[in-house]
Write a protein that binds this DNA or RNA. Structure first.
Length: 584
DNA sequence: GCCGTTTTCGGCCCGACTGTTTTCAGTCG
């Protein structure tokens, strides 16, 4: 089983236990375990095979029990306790808990009292007016549930960060200019730069005192945002909207003295905050969204700025991208919190296409676009001939393009421009294993990307043969979009990432972090694993047009989540250093 | 189910909002 599959199983165990009314802390332990498994950079099957179940207890939050259950999943592919739980809880009941407003208690009630075991039955029971008769339920609750059933399909659907960003920018533009707003920041998983975002949070500083008039003005303006379908809730400080698209946006208004605490709190992650609060408690302090307080009284120790909040707890101001309770607390204690890479650190872009294949611009136009964006070098890497739909290049057309690149480089040199174009190719790894172009052609290239576009559904052994063969090829510099996943659309191909990373380390090859917002491949966990193995990451745009270069920032955000510094990313180097570091 | 700078037992983050309630449970983040 993959780590992801093991994590999904543990997560479902937690759901089932929660439905049964189990000890909430036991439920939390399973959820926490699921997250740790999903975040693990090594394949846990491999860990269990080489070191046994006991090695898993090294993972923080995994004790003897969970270690044995994870090992059982890893070696057997199933878990006896999981199967028993599934027998006790009818299938379909878990879907009930995904209806907004229906948590484990209410879901259990409708199941126990009314025999409801599916969304269809729940709808029927609501429409028959049976649900409002239950103790603790009423007419309003029934209506909420009925509306929630329709939302259940959409709910849980996360949007890409880049799409969330578009909404955020529109929202900020809509809100800005209102005098009642002193400061404002989008928070939540958007601020942490997660590759997908479930809902949006906007935090607003309404001034020294929570002037009700100011709050009302902010909330009124918020409610007038274009595309609002409904106001879900509106209280004294908090308001929630649902957009036509189904996206939920939460607004929180806080006084200036609490703004930093609120920003810290609403940025999350939940797991990071649990740790923060636990640490506060150990220091005799209490943290909530209003500030840091002495545990025994009302005295506020911090709250105005986020930095003050962390400092009061003896912690550094963590970059939002690292706030996942993965390694950040340990790194901070060791004084090894990384200085994360920034967009300005990138000096080149090593993956892009031109109109010779499926791109829209010429080599010269791509050079101009890259120079406008402050880059010092690019590699032109069009598709190879196997990619017939894109009119991929054969050896002759490729060599013709390289002659053109020679001319462009000579022009740049004669104009005194410090910019260089590398002669590259995105060469397919054919279904049977070999590269799509002859070795002597690849040997002439400055930069060879190896990619897998066909036979993506092959079994793991075959996929790995192809990838490892490419890594060992003397002319190959890098594996592009190593898992092939498209976020929310296409599953990754069956890659044993540990093995691929180890091979890259052995042969001195790079792995790509493809910055296309639909790909972001490698993901943050795998990037961190590559870093740990000393494998350089290359952040690439895979641009098919001049504007396509602008996606680099999404890749940088993902790299930051992985804890990457400029040194971990090869294309932060000047051209000479790059080529001496990673061949070509 | 996990964990230990007062602990191997007894804790485990904290508050807003809603609805069904006259003081609180459930849900959400």
């Amino acid at each position: 089983m993959t780590n992801r599959e093991i994590a999904a199983a543990l997560e479902e165990v937690a759901d089932l236990l929660e439905f049964q009314g189990a000890n909430p802390f036991r439920v939390r332990a399973y959820r926490n375990g699921a997250r740790k498994v999903a975040d693990a950079s090594q394949s846990l099957v491999g860990v269990v095979e080489s070191s046994g179940a006991v090695a898993l207890t090294e993972i923080d939050g995994v004790g003897k029990d969970l270690a044995e259950k994870i090992a059982e999943l890893a070696t057997e592919g199933s878990l006896a306790m999981f199967d028993e739980l599934r027998e006790q809880v009818p299938p379909g009941v878990l879907a009930l808990m995904r209806v907004p407003g229906l948590g484990p208690k209410k879901a259990a009630a409708v199941h126990k009292e009314l025999g409801v075991g599916s969304l269809d039955q729940l709808r029927a029971a609501c429409e028959a007016g049976e649900v409002q008769q239950l103790k603790g339920f009423g007419k309003k609750t029934e209506e909420t549930i009925l509306a929630g059933i329709d939302l259940a399909a959409k709910a849980g659907e996360r949007i890409r960060w880049a799409d969330a960003d578009a909404v955020v920018q529109r929202l900020l533009e809509h809100m800005d200019g209102l005098g009642a707003i002193k400061r404002r920041d989008p928070a939540g998983s958007y601020r942490r730069g997660k590759e997908t975002v479930g809902d949006l949070d906007l935090l607003v500083d309404v001034g020294e005192s929570m002037d009700p008039t100011a709050v009302a003005a902010v909330m009124d303006r918020f409610g007038e945002f274009e595309g609002v379908a409904e106001v879900i809730a509106r209280g004294d400080t908090k308001m929630s909207l649902r957009m036509d698209s189904g996206l939920q946006i939460d607004l929180r208004c806080v006084p200036s003295e609490s703004y930093g605490a609120a920003l810290q709190y609403f940025t999350g992650s939940k797991e990071h905050n649990v740790e923060v609060r636990g640490r506060a408690k150990a220091r005799g302090l209490k943290v909530n969204e209003w500030g840091v307080f002495k545990a025994d009284g009302e005295e506020r120790v911090a709250g105005e700025s986020e930095e003050q909040v962390y400092v009061a707890l003896g912690l550094p101001l963590f970059p939002p991208e690292l706030r996942e309770n993965r390694q950040e607390f340990a790194a901070a204690e060791a004084g090894k919190l990384p200085r994360l890479i920034e967009l300005g650190d990138l000096r080149g872009d090593l993956h892009m296409h031109t109109s010779a294949t499926d791109g829209r611009a010429t080599v010269r136009e791509m050079v101009a676009a890259a120079r406008e964006r402050g880059l010092e070098y690019i590699a032109i890497t069009d598709h190879s001939k196997r990619v017939t739909m894109a009119h991929g290049l054969d050896a002759d057309r490729l060599r013709a393009q390289w002659r053109e690149i020679d001319v462009v480089n000579e022009e740049l040199t004669s104009e005194g421009v410090d910019f260089r174009v590398l002669k590259g190719i995105e060469c397919d790894i054919l279904e049977a294993g070999p590269m799509d172009l002859p070795d002597d052609v690849l040997a002439e290239a400055d930069w060879v990307i190896a990619s897998l576009h066909y036979g993506q559904n092959q079994p793991r052994a075959k996929i790995m043969d192809r990838l490892l063969g490419a890594v060992a090829h003397p002319s190959v510099s890098i594996i592009a979009h190593p898992t092939g996943r498209l976020i929310g659309k296409r599953a990754p191909y069956d890659v044993e990432m540990d093995e691929l990373i180890a091979a890259c380390a052995e042969h001195g090859k790079c792995l790509e972090l493809n910055a296309n917002p639909a790909r972001l491949d490698l993901d943050d966990v795998h990037c961190a694993a590559a870093k740990a193995a000393g494998v350089p990451i290359v952040i690439s745009s895979d641009a098919h047009s001049p504007e396509g270069l602008d996606v680099l920032r999404y890749g940088v955000l993902q790299a930051r989540r992985a804890g990457l510094t400029a040194d971990d990313v090869a294309n932060t180097s000047a051209i000479k250093a790059l080529l001496s570091r990673v061949g070509g």
